[in-house]
Each structure stands twice: as C-alpha cells, then as structure tokens.
C-alpha cells in the first residue's frame, strides 16, 4: 500500500514536471516574439452583393431557400470591419524565421455549394484538408500562376484531400467548375499570416521583435502595406482601411 502510494506520487510528480517543462518551453519561445493585432475597415458603402442563383443544383438551392446566398467579394461586419482580408508580413522577417511549417491543418470545406472559409491563409508547404460535406460532387480547381495547377473532383463521402502549396502566392483563385458560383481564395505566404474575422480584426502571432512591412490583401480592393515595429513582449497594432470604390 505504502509503496503503491509512493509510486503514484512519483508518477504524478513526473507528469507535473513534464507538463511544466512543456509550458515553460512554450512561454520561453513566445516571450521573445511579439504579436501584431489590428482591424481592417471599409470606408464608404459596400457594393451590392448579388444573390446567387443555385437552381442548377437543386439540393443547394433548397438548402438556402430562406436565405439566398450572396457574393462574398466584400463582406462587411456591423461595425464596418472588413472580413476575409489576408494580413501578412511581406518584408523584414529574418531569413531564419518562419522556417517551421505549422503542423495545424486548416480545413477547406465545401458545404451548401459554398467554400467555407471563403479565404484561407497558408504557410508554404503547410498542409490543408479539402473536404466535401455536400451530397453532390464538387471539383476543386485552383488556378495558381506560381504553383502547379490542379483540378480534381471530390464525390460525396470521399476522403479529404491532403494538399499543400510549395511557392508563395497571394492569392490563388479557387473555383468549382460544376458550380461556377463557388469561388474562394488561398493565400500562400511565408511566416505569420491571418485572415480578418467578421469584425475585421486579426492577430499575427509569433512575430519576433523588429521592423516590418505588413500587407493586407483583399480580393476586390487589392493590397495595402504599412510599416510596423514590434517590440519584445509588447503587442503592436496595425489598422487598415480600404476605400469602397
């Protein structure tokens, strides 16, 4: 009995130590790196986003019968925040930085004849999963200029595609030829990157202290840049404003 308690005690101590060490090591690495946060806004009135007629695919049409899906070229939140803007560090990263490819695999889902998300930001060689949640076949047709093009069907219930891009490219248009209204973008950049959320806000993690050029890219309005300085242990802020045409 006594020995068993002892053993359990030693084991839990070991586990605790291990967990502590892990947390510590993460803190150590994060301590030296900063963060950039910010908001992207749209000045002016957003253009009218046309409703999409999905009558060709009766399943999707029925699915959206009550709330017709509209275009997603300019998606503005209630606070004027601009969604789906890719923000990334375009200049100033040390050559050593960003060498580590994130192990997290973002999902690129086809659901209700829409791409979810509409825009995805990826690191070079970062794997992502293409899935089909619809009971109909889709084809995924990215049309890159700096990466090899591919075009593959994904029947309902098929295994997800596990794919990646080898070269930097902002941004690769992706379309489904079977459902021509399905349209999305994949941004492939080296290093920290984020896509603005429904309020237009974004966070770039793991940015080491230094001076950078930050780029925000939006599918309709193009790219904007600004300089930003990240100091150790202090998040920097960078806000962008796009003008409606």
């Amino acid at each position: 009995m006594k020995t068993r308690n002892k053993l359990a005690g030693m084991l839990s101590a070991l586990v605790l130590a291990a967990v502590g060490a892990l947390m510590l090591s993460r803190n150590v690495s994060a301590a030296g790196e900063g963060k950039i946060t910010g908001t992207v806004k749209l000045a002016g009135t957003a253009p009218h986003q046309r409703a999409i007629d999905m009558s060709k695919e009766p399943y999707c049409q029925k699915l959206h019968a009550d709330h017709p899906v509209t275009l997603e070229n300019v998606v503005v939140g209630s606070n004027g925040g601009l969604q789906n803007v890719v923000v990334y560090v375009s200049e100033g990263l040390p050559a050593s930085a960003g060498g580590q490819v994130p192990s997290e695999k973002p999902k690129w889902d086809q659901k209700g004849c829409q791409y979810i998300p509409h825009v995805v930001a990826l690191d070079i060689n970062q794997h992502f999963l293409v899935t089909n949640s619809d009971p109909t076949s889709h084809n995924i047709h990215p049309i890159p200029t700096k990466n090899p093009q591919w075009n593959k069907s994904q029947p309902p219930g098929a295994q997800p595609f596990d794919v990646s891009w080898a070269n930097e490219e902002v941004s690769i248009p992706v379309k489904c030829n079977i459902h021509p209204w399905m349209h999305g973008w994949m941004a492939v950049v080296k290093g920290p990157t984020a896509v603005s959320d429904g309020n237009g806000s974004f966070t770039l993690d793991n940015v080491p202290p230094g001076n950078y050029t930050l780029t925000a890219w939006q599918e309709t309005y193009g790219a904007q840049t600004q300089k930003v300085t990240v100091a150790a242990g202090k998040p920097a802020t960078a806000d962008f404003t796009f003008k409606a045409k």
């Binding site: 084809n139 593959k152 069907s153 295994q159």
Partner: peptide, 12 residues
C-alpha cells in the same frame, strides 16, 4: 489514386 480514391470512380 486520384481517379478512383478508395476504388470509387470520380467523374473525370
């Protein structure tokens, strides 16, 4: 592998 993942034919 691409044309018949899991032995199921794709449209192409």
């Amino acid at each position: 592998k691409n044309g018949a993942p899991g032995g199921v034919l794709t449209p192409e």
